[in-house]
Amino acid sequence: MIEVRLFATFREGRDKISYLEPQGYHTAAEIIHYFRIADDEVAICLINGRHSKLDSSVKDGDVIALFPPVGGG
């Protein structure tokens, strides 16, 4: 399974943690589209804690963390 953790406003109307069957997803972009999140809404995409571009490949066992812009003061 691929574990997907959403943070901040991405959680609104969605589960904060989801588990997806790996067969249906080849890239991080395909996963964010599953959640109906647009590419340009993603500020940070981490795959197993590492910064990753949205065209990065994903595989079974990966943990993906997605963040919208957060940084005001």
Binding site: D40, A43, I44, C45, L46, H51, P69, V70, G71, G72, G73
Partner: peptide, 21 residues
């Protein structure tokens, strides 16, 4: 920069609740 924060596009003004800040 390691986590790609430089790509963040904040749209000012950022929403802010005093207690959370």
């Amino acid at each position: 920069e390691c986590i790609g924060y430089g790509n963040t596009k904040l749209k000012p003004p950022t929403a802010a609740l005093g207690a959370v800040v």
